[in-house]
């Protein structure tokens, strides 16, 4: 079998199947990772007392342990306490927790960077603390968190390959199966790497467009270099 036949008849169809699983993993994880990340950051920054402590502890635990360990616990450990996840669900749950914890730190950093005056002015108008956070502080903080959040999204694309360790045949897993069956390691893994590169490139371009679209006119981000 020549390389072209291997590539087009065997490798690419297998990788395509794996890619679909990878995209499903990301699509199921990222939105919740962002939503929980926002909730955790706000809870830690403004929750006070027990809520703040809970958020801080959650982030500490996730940051302090390998994601792979978390996946093993969810998939192999949880059945012992009566919770059985499919491999796909266990992966998604693990990714959401991990993604949320790191997103929360990027968002918290951005929340801290918003000057107190914004909150004070909102409260002086009769807004509740929650309204001030929701309508004044968060919209500004999320803009500032975009570079960090996009970084974390790119990590998610890549650490989604850990799902393979708990039997989900995603992109990396699909590549590995083909590689070991046909003994064509370099070719298979190079192709897998290219697919990840394409995913990351698409993300980078999309984030650039997003950043420009939500930039606030008159600020550094909202002004093109030529105008400065």
């Amino acid at each position: 079998m020549d390389l072209a036949a291997f590539t087009f008849d065997i490798l690419l169809p297998a990788l395509m199947q794996g890619l679909i699983i990878t995209l499903q993993l990301i699509a199921c994880s990222a939105p919740f990772g962002l939503a929980f990340g926002i909730a955790i950051a706000v809870g830690r920054q403004y929750g006070g007392g027990a809520i703040s402590w809970l958020c801080k502890t959650f982030v500490f635990l996730i940051k302090g342990t390998p994601l792979l360990l978390l996946l093993f616990i969810l998939y192999f450990g949880f059945p012992a306490i009566g919770i059985t996840f499919t491999a796909f669900t266990a992966s998604v749950v693990g990714f959401i927790l991990c993604n949320a914890a790191y997103n929360a730190e990027y968002i918290r950093g951005a929340l801290i960077s918003i000057k107190d005056g914004q909150m004070i002015a909102a409260q002086a108008l009769g807004m509740t603390r929650w309204q001030a956070i929701r309508h004044v502080v968060l919209p500004q903080a999320l803009r500032r968190a975009i570079p960090g959040l996009s970084n974390e999204f790119i990590y998610l694309i890549k650490y989604s390959s850990l799902a393979y360790m708990i039997t989900v045949i995603e992109l990396s897993g699909a590549g590995k199966l083909v590689a070991t069956k046909y003994f064509l390691y370099t070719e298979s893994f190079a192709a897998v790497g290219i697919v990840y590169l394409v995913l990351v490139t698409i993300t980078t371009v999309a984030v650039n467009i997003l950043e420009k679209r939500v930039a606030i006119p008159g600020t550094t981000r909202g002004t093109t270099a030529a105008q400065l």
């Binding site: 005056g117 914004q118 004070i120 909102a122 009769g126 500004q140 606030i216 600020t219």
Partner: peptide, 17 residues
């Protein structure tokens, strides 16, 4: 009450976004 008591600040504190 805060609705009924307006406030204007030295550094404006307009909502930047």
């Amino acid at each position: 009450f805060r609705q009924k008591i307006g406030m204007v600040f030295q550094n404006f504190f307009l909502f930047d976004h």
